[in-house]
């Protein structure tokens, strides 16, 4: 029985190995792993970084990438960038959305309000394709959860543009990126030194911008992360205490049974 149990344990080990291996599949470079404040059992986002990340998204990414699942009101919600209400209202008002049909049945544009969804750069997917040489820039709302490696992968991808080795030929509209699958990607490098001028005065290095926008996208994909971890900590503490109480109750009950 010992031998078979060991065999069993070996297979369990193999299985866990297979899961990690599965994630690594696809001949890509292992992504960088910066210290993220939102990791760990009590992790939280950095407010200032989220706010800067929103700036990077609007000034750099939003020209091509939509975030259809977010609304401007999310910017003031707890656990997010936590902009003040007037700030978020002003940010929303910088975009235009279609108004409801007026009395004559015509549709005019009006400034966006908090309850509006983030304004998409395109009317529809076809327009997005046409504007980008056939490659549709994907929606970024849940991007961090939709890619292996999550935040690490996106961060690395944004910084992974290097000169292609001489033996690799790139087609038009395809760029070389160390962290992309097959090292080829349809998105050009966007984060250059001072691509944005941060309103809070932070120096806009590519690393800083990649970090901020990735933090922002992580929040966008999982806006309830802080509440989840906070409640989870309480729930597990509660369950641990209850399990100890039940352990002793159980022992007490079985004391006289032999």
């Amino acid at each position: 029985m010992k031998i078979s149990t060991n065999l069993f344990a070996t297979f369990l080990l193999l299985l866990s190995f297979s899961i990690t291996q599965l994630h690594a599949a696809g001949e890509m470079k292992e992504p960088m792993h910066p210290d993220w404040s939102f990791e760990g059992p009590l992790g939280k986002f950095e407010r200032a970084s989220l706010q800067r990340g929103y700036q990077v998204y609007t000034e750099v990414c939003s020209g091509c990438h939509s975030m259809n699942l977010l609304s401007y009101r999310n910017l003031i919600e707890e656990g997010g960038p936590e902009f003040s209400e007037p700030q978020a209202k002003a940010m929303a008002a910088a975009f235009e959305v279609k108004a409801a049909p007026n009395a004559d049945g015509e549709i005019e544009m009006r400034p966006a309000i908090l309850s509006d969804k983030f304004v998409s750069p395109y009317e529809n997917e076809q327009q997005g394709r046409a504007a980008n040489g056939g490659a549709y820039p994907p929606d970024l709302s849940v991007m961090v959860k939709a890619r292996h490696g999550g935040a690490d992968y996106l961060y690395s991808l944004l910084l992974g543009y290097v000169d292609a080795p001489s033996d690799i030929k790139l087609d038009d509209g395809v760029y070389y990126n160390e962290y992309a699958k097959g090292q080829k990607i349809a998105m050009p490098q966007v984060l250059y030194e001072d691509a944005v001028v941060y309103t809070d005065g932070t120096t806009a290095t590519p690393e800083q911008m990649a970090r901020d926008v990735t933090m922002f996208l992580t929040w966008a994909a999982e806006p309830k992360l802080e509440a989840r971890k906070r409640i989870g900590f309480k729930v597990i503490s509660y369950l641990l205490i209850l399990s100890v109480l039940l352990y002793f109750t159980n022992r007490q009950i079985w004391k006289d049974t032999h």
Partner: peptide
């Protein structure tokens, strides 16, 4: 069950 729930909660919350 409570021990099982600790594992369950570990998945759900973390």
């Amino acid at each position: 069950l409570v021990v099982f729930l600790i594992v369950f909660a570990g998945f759900v919350f973390f």
